[in-house]
Design a binder for these strands. Structure first.
Lengths: 249, 249
DNA sequence: AAATCCAGTTCGAAATTTTGTAACTTGTGT
DNA sequence: ACACAAGTTACAAAATTTCGAACTGGATTT
């Protein structure tokens, strides 16, 4: 392995875990000769990967990283990244998979994998659905900031679409708490009769939940209790997508 | 200069300007041996600076950059970064310098350099002021998204604080357009009698105008026409601060 | 004001590391 | 099934980095 690169990465990782460091500080903490560190910093400085506080003369990570990060963010395409995972989920469950996002008011379907079974669900990419009675909606809503959650709940009308739709605000708040605890959401015929779903949240580089992935089943074929056996796989897939979107820790 | 680092930086810069590249593509575009490129990519992959699309096997910039960028963003402190610049502006103009931000409704003073002259302006860090009749407020507002600008203008009451306060909505919209054109804003006794100001916008890594820096003068000592002679220096300082906050291009 | 100390910087010979050829493997398309 | 292109590995040659040492400059102490 190119030792030069490894040493450079070690310096970057050290700078990452500190705010500002002097040459000496790096010398003390890493087993790299100070003249080598000096040479590396000088070159990195020139290319913007490291910057120097003009007053304190201390080193920190360069703004080049910001520049690169914004380019990565612009190039990240949730559908491209997630599609393979959705296919695999479809393969495993043989049920309908949806990828959804939240437009501030409702859930929007942005990708879909069809079940191979003859009876399929009716849904289309681009369709919208209420947040309060879909697993995907609840999975996203549950992990938003308190202020946002409250203002959205205030605007909800809780119109029952099925006999299972949650119409009580307190019960809905409890349901969200339960989702936060368990890490996934369910919909037991709350949106459409005879359809049940489970959904898991997807985070991106900003650490915010921006999307959800869900498995939907027709109850005559698969009861909610059986659908829930897929929860660990679902959450795992969602976590993998999050990672690929730049979510860390 | 350590050639290994320089080569690594060149590879990163190439990846930056493309979405996904194969080893061959990098080999074609850079004068670096393919086995070297391969070795570098392998090591960079291990440390997360480069990632590989598992399907296409193509390389792109790693999510480590996102990780590092969020740390940089968290550590950036506008006051620390700008203070030296504000001092220099105070030195040059010998007038009062303010650093301001926008809380969604009004302008907030977050730093101040006093004029050395006996007669000083009354203002304190933490104070708030209207956006529509201060140079700083207008400098920030002028560069917000259209939707935001409109919704803020809708809420403005245009209460005259001096005889020069702009009270006509159309005139105010024209003034904002003028600021966008010129790159700086003025306040000719629109907020307080006998005080004039010029202000320039400051952008951060997100490319949005988040702050403004302003020079305020007491008209008996310095008329607006004279204050405006500092505009180029002011805009230059604001641009420098923007750069240090990670703003590029 | 001189002296001391500490961090940072530069230099060059020694030597380790990178380099790049070449051979091999994998995968893709015909 | 073959041919071709891309990707991967190994190794000896060589060029680069390395690191000790010496120097500079700034800060602190005597």
């Amino acid at each position: 392995m190119p030792q030069t690169l490894v040493k450079f990465f070690k310096i970057i990782e050290l700078l990452e875990s500190s705010s500002e460091l002097r040459l000496k500080d790096i010398d003390d903490r890493l087993d790299i000769d100070k003249s080598t560190i000096h040479r590396f910093l000088k070159t990195s400085l020139k290319y913007g990967f490291v910057r120097m506080n003009p007053v304190s003369k201390k080193y920190s990570l360069g703004l080049k990283f910001l520049n690169i990060a914004t380019k990565i963010i612009d190039s990240i395409d949730i559908r491209n990244i997630s599609h393979q995972h959705l296919l695999e989920l479809g393969e495993i469950s043989n049920e309908t998979i949806h990828l959804t996002t939240f437009d501030g008011k409702r859930v929007v379907y942005i990708d879909k994998i069809e079940s191979r079974e003859p009876i399929r669900m009716y849904s289309r990419i681009g369709n919208i659905a209420p947040i309060n009675c879909t697993a995907a909606g609840k999975a996203i809503l549950a992990f938003q900031e308190d202020g946002i959650v409250n203002s959205i709940i205030e605007k909800l009308d809780f119109i029952p679409l099925t006999k299972n739709t949650i119409t009580d605000k307190e019960k809905f708040i409890e349901a969200l708490e339960d989702i936060r605890q368990k890490g996934f959401a369910v919909d037991d015929s709350e949106h459409e009769e005879d359809i049940c779903c489970i959904a898991a949240p997807i985070r991106d580089y900003s650490k915010e939940v921006k999307y959800a992935v869900s498995i939907s089943a027709i109850k005559s074929r698969m009861e909610l209790s059986k659908l829930i056996t897929f929860k660990d796989i679902l959450v795992d897939k969602a976590d993998n997508i999050s990672k690929e979107l730049g979510y860390m820790k």
